[in-house]
Amino acid sequence: MARTMWDSSVGKKTVMAVSGVIMLLYLVAHVIGNLKIFFGPEEFNHYGHWLRTVGEPFMHYEWTLWLVRIVLLVAVVAHAVSAYQLSRRDIKARPSKYVHKKPRASYATRTMRWGGIILGLFIVWHVLDLTTGHVHPGGFQEGHPYENVVDTFSTWYGNVIYIVAMLAVGLHVRHGFWSAAQTLGVGSRTRDRALKTIANVLALLLTAGFIAVPVGVMTGVVS
């Protein structure tokens, strides 16, 4: 069954849909966590610490966090590899373009591939900036996410990279969520409007929720 899945274009799209949904669920949790920054450094830093102690005493310190990280890494890799292979196939299937060109499909649909690449690069920067601190502007303080976030969004490029990436997330989710539903066969004529609405609302809330943090730092609400 795994072989049939991976070898078929329909199966590979299923891999994309499932890994996409996993990442989307994570994003929802992530944005809720982020918004705690508006309640001050104590609450936000405590939340950051709690993420490492989830599941104790059943789980050891940071075990749950690492479990989530591994699942996410597998999801990102599966999503990217299948996207790459499917895109290669799609491009090969349409070698010559039409002379008479017309604007096709919605903006969100047309930007899935580039948007995905932008998001992939963003994740690398984001982890190096706020998780490991390798490219962090100013002194990275382990266990003080509030201060680290303020550092990042006090630089112009930190804001630009982050806001562009979050707009890309919105567009990606807008087409991706609805598409995943079709790929997994849960879409139907009666459910279509609801699925499209959920996709739009999710995209809007995620983008707005994430962008609220750099805007908060820029306007001095978070400092």
């Binding site: 274009s9 329909v10 590979k12 799209k13 499917l86 196939r89 799609d90 491009i91 090969k92 299937a93 349409r94 096709r104 499909a105 649909t109 047309r110 899935m112 087409h175 609805w178 598409s179 079709q182 790929t183």
Partner: peptide
């Protein structure tokens, strides 16, 4: 050698 679906519609 047909491509895959990206639900462009």
């Amino acid at each position: 050698g047909f491509g895959g679906c990206t639900l462009a519609g």
